[in-house]
Write a protein that binds this DNA or RNA. Structure first.
Lengths: 156, 156
DNA sequence: ATACTCTAATGGTCAAAGAAAGTCAGAAAA
DNA sequence: TTTTCTGACTTTCTTTGACCATTAGAGTAT
């Protein structure tokens, strides 16, 4: 795996845990990954730009830091973020359910839609004799497809 | 946490308790924080300047002291202070941004206005072949003009 | 008592050192 | 060729220390 990608996913893990904001030390992070500090700037520039839905602030000097904030998005933007960033190639039924219930809570999908979508990716619906791994891959694709449709319906 | 930040929040705690005014001994405070006395001056200069809404008076010699007073101003008064006292004949883009972000934080301009104003004075907006010094002069005039407009809209 | 001087106790200034982060051109890798 | 990575150099913010300025009060001379 490319170094930049490792750093990117490391930061995204932090962002997933710690709400939508992380603060980190450029030098520490560089040391952790055994790379040049400026590598961190490269990752920020290529993966955490406003185009990617993030803003960064930083401070130099003693006690300096870099703060990365995931930008507040419209509902559709958030759906597309999930499609493009959060959902990878594979999702378990449990993960699907968790995502759907979050979305329902946030009002991004309706109380009618949520259970429909959940049933689409349920083990029951996918009860055909293929490996589990394939089912999870299908679930990811189904979720992306459904969410993209909803985002488009609501306009970006 | 940065030493300066610790001292800043210590003083702000005192200010919150004791009305809007504190009196302290530079040397005692420095001793308490185990730092050079001049560090206190640094904190005053960078966090308790008139720009930040404070004025300080002090006295040397036996029984000397430093008094910090939080200035109460209406929003419009503060804007006019900026126009008449703080903003001179010239402002860099960075200074503009700093001022605007402070004003946004203080609720004197809205989160919608701030980026609009920032973009007006941005290097991108002013990308014409004239000397930098002239652009900075324009920025100062633009900022004064915009802030005066907002102050007038909100009433003094 | 008054005025003057000396001194200890304060606070102020500024330049230099230290501690991060940013930039950018070019090397390396894909 | 494009993307990734590095290193030298730059900029910004913090902290310190040496030296300067001011003040109250004690001591002293008139």
């Amino acid at each position: 795996m490319r170094l930049s990608d490792s750093i990117e996913s490391f930061i995204k893990t932090l962002l997933a845990e710690d709400s939508s904001e992380v603060e980190l030390k450029r030098n520490e992070l560089a040391e952790y990954f055994g790379c040049a500090p400026s590598q961190i700037n490269y990752v920020l520039a290529t993966r955490f730009s406003p185009d990617h839905g993030y803003v960064t602030e930083s401070r130099r000097g003693g006690g300096g830091y870099i703060r990365i904030v995931r930008v507040v998005q419209s509902g559709s933007q958030r759906l597309l973020y999930l499609v493009n960033e959060r959902i990878g190639d594979s999702l378990s039924e449990e993960e699907c359910i968790r995502i759907l219930s979050q979305l329902k809570e946030q009002g991004l999908i309706s109380a009618q839609e949520a259970p429909v979508m959940a049933s689409a990716v349920s083990a029951k619906a996918l009860a055909v004799p293929i490996p589990e791994a394939l089912k999870d891959a299908m679930r990811a694709r189904m979720m992306k497809s459904m969410l993209t449709t909803i985002a488009a319906r609501n306009g970006v």
